[in-house]
Amino acid sequence: MTPAARWRRAALGVVVGADVLVLLVAGVALPGLLPFLVPLLVVATAWALHRPAGWGALTLLVLQVVGVGVAREAPVSLTDWALAAVTGAAVVGTHLALSMLAAYPPGAALPDAAVRRWVTQGFVVATVGGIAAGIGVVGSSTPAGAGPWVLAAAFLLVAGTAALVWRATRTR
């Protein structure tokens, strides 16, 4: 069993770490945004951690996305797409950490199997963001005439992902 103090600290670390990541990604592109974004994120994070099942959690996710969206331009380079994938992982990490905090009572110790499952599932959904970024890289570096092919490849990847999810969960 993972003691409540440990898994709750880990979840809190994921949320704060995601905030720091979002601030870094936004701050490198537009440093002038930080004085506005930092206090907003601090307040929203405190609110979300206080009531993980409430509106604070939604506000925090929106602020993370809006912060990065306002600071950065449309991605063109491989680095831009990689940063988009990292931002996606941070946002989904925040979401899953808050979901755990909302689902389990504050004092409850978690079975190790549950912790492993949450980490694995979080890794899988974050990887889906990476796959989407990969499609973005291919799409942005392909001549305009190959658009339909890229679109078809994207659909195939989505279908493949759905099939993988179905296969992974068939024996649930």
Binding site: W81, A84, G88, V91, V92, A126, V128, G129, T161
Partner: peptide, 8 residues
């Protein structure tokens, strides 16, 4: 791309 993991 950032929204795709949430949809997943």
């Amino acid at each position: 791309v950032a929204g795709v993991p949430l949809l997943a």
